[in-house]
């Protein structure tokens, strides 16, 4: 009787296959959690070599002056003066391809960098030297150096449980300091997983997936408008380094459980649940039941 039923309605074969496949595939993928990974930050010193500065000036005159004015003094278009923006700003805007802009009215967004590494070094050098050349304005922030990650997750002291924000004196930082700093200062705009969001008046808050560790540190110090500047008063160098490491960690987090859709939050989960969970079940039910 059951055999006849099986043959005719295929009621059992389908479900059993689904269960088998689910169990096998599910458990294999489930066990494959991401591995923790870390990387020490590289320090980028700005060249003070006069030939670099000169080469930077040439590049500036051809590509930037039309908007930012003679010797970065501004006043030509809506583009700001560059005299005291510092190497951090120059490096951030150039390595993220935000500059040169083709239209001063556009929001400067991330693009493939227009210049190569050497040219960027030269432009950085020139802009860092502008306060000296023009003789007015204080020097801007230098390219920040990112402290390395500690080898133990609880910080160098290893005295776990002493709270995370107490500086332990030694130069290294922990991911944990980065996580709480990020949650406190950045998640409000960039979302907890760094996937970006929306600011009013149509400004896009970008995902942090593409920003490397130096760019994250620079972004805090520079504050690419409309993002606020986080100076050393708000965020110490240590915390800045920790946040930069945590953002890099978020690129490949040790976050088990399968395909990561957390960047879009519960709404994306609902979509998957309805379409791939309930949707498949509706289909199954249509196969089992009669229609019309």
């Amino acid at each position: 009787m059951i055999a006849a039923l099986l043959r005719r309605r295929r009621v059992l074969a389908g479900p059993l296959a689904v269960v088998a496949v689910a169990v096998v595939v599910g458990s294999v993928l489930f066990m494959a959690g991401g591995a923790a990974h870390g990387q020490t930050g590289q320090s980028l010193l700005v060249s003070t070599n006069s030939s670099d500065i000169l080469a930077g000036q040439t590049l500036y005159d051809t590509h930037c002056e039309s908007c930012h004015g003679y010797e970065g003094k501004g006043g030509v278009t809506s583009a700001p003066a560059l005299v005291s923006v510092g190497a951090a700003a120059a490096d951030f805007y150039l390595t993220t391809g935000r500059m040169p802009l083709n239209n001063p009215a556009n929001q400067a967004l991330r693009h493939h960098p227009y210049f190569d590494r050497t040219q960027i070094r030269q432009l950085d050098a020139y802009i860092a030297a502008l306060p000296g050349i023009t003789g007015d304005g204080p020097p801007g922030p230098a390219i920040p150096t990112v402290a390395p990650l500690c080898s133990s997750p609880s910080g160098s002291g290893g005295s776990g449980g002493s709270g995370n924000r107490s500086g332990s004196g030694s130069g290294c930082v922990t991911l944990s300091e980065g996580e709480s700093g990020f949650a406190l200062n950045c998640a409000e705009c960039h979302q907890a997983a760094g996937s970006g969001g929306m600011l009013s008046k149509g400004n896009v808050i970008p995902t942090l997936r593409n920003a490397n560790i130096t760019q994250v540190a620079e972004a805090m110090r520079v504050g690419p408008k409309p993002m606020p500047v986080f100076g050393p008063k708000e965020i110490s160098n240590k915390e800045m380094s920790a946040i930069a490491h945590y953002v890099e960690y978020l690129h490949q987090p040790a976050s088990p459980g399968g395909l990561r859709i957390s960047g879009f939050g519960p709404i994306a989960e609902g979509f998957v649940g309805i379409v791939f969970g309930f949707g498949i079940l509706l289909f199954a039910v249509r196969m089992i039941g009669t229609r019309g």
């Binding site: 689904v18 599910g26 993928l29 976050s255 399968g258 990561r260 859709i261 519960p266 998957v272 969970g277």
Partner: peptide, 17 residues
């Protein structure tokens, strides 16, 4: 089928990390 589909999702797609 229901438990198969739900456990497949549970094994394959992360939810509420």
């Amino acid at each position: 089928i229901v438990s198969g589909v739900i456990f497949a999702l549970a094994g394959l797609v992360q939810i509420n990390p």
